[in-house]
């Protein structure tokens, strides 16, 4: 598995349940690759950002 395939699966993982095989291959790749490991975390962060975007997270009176 290369980084392009790994990131595609990390994005798809937000849309569907990955197969056991996919998950296993992904896990091995991410363990060895810091770029894809960061990318994996950022997929969740992007989702959090999007939720805050429409939930008043952009307001300046937020403490």
């Amino acid at each position: 598995m290369n980084c392009e395939q790994a990131t595609r699966l990390l994005s798809d993982g937000q849309e569907r349940e990955l197969s056991f095989k996919e998950k296993a291959a992904l896990k091995i790749h991410v363990l060895m690759c810091s770029g894809c490991s960061n990318f994996a975390q950022q997929m969740h962060v992007l989702r959090d950002f999007a939720q805050l975007y429409t939930q008043g997270g952009r307001d300046d009176d937020k403490k």
Binding site: G35, N38, D48
Partner: peptide, 26 residues
């Protein structure tokens, strides 16, 4: 990505420092 599908050196994602602090800033 390069031809083999690995991150170009310049493009490899870095660690994001404190993303949940960023959202507090306009």
């Amino acid at each position: 990505f390069d031809k083999k599908g690995f991150w170009q050196k310049e493009e490899r994602p870095g660690a994001w420092a404190q993303p949940m602090e960023a959202v507090k800033k306009d």
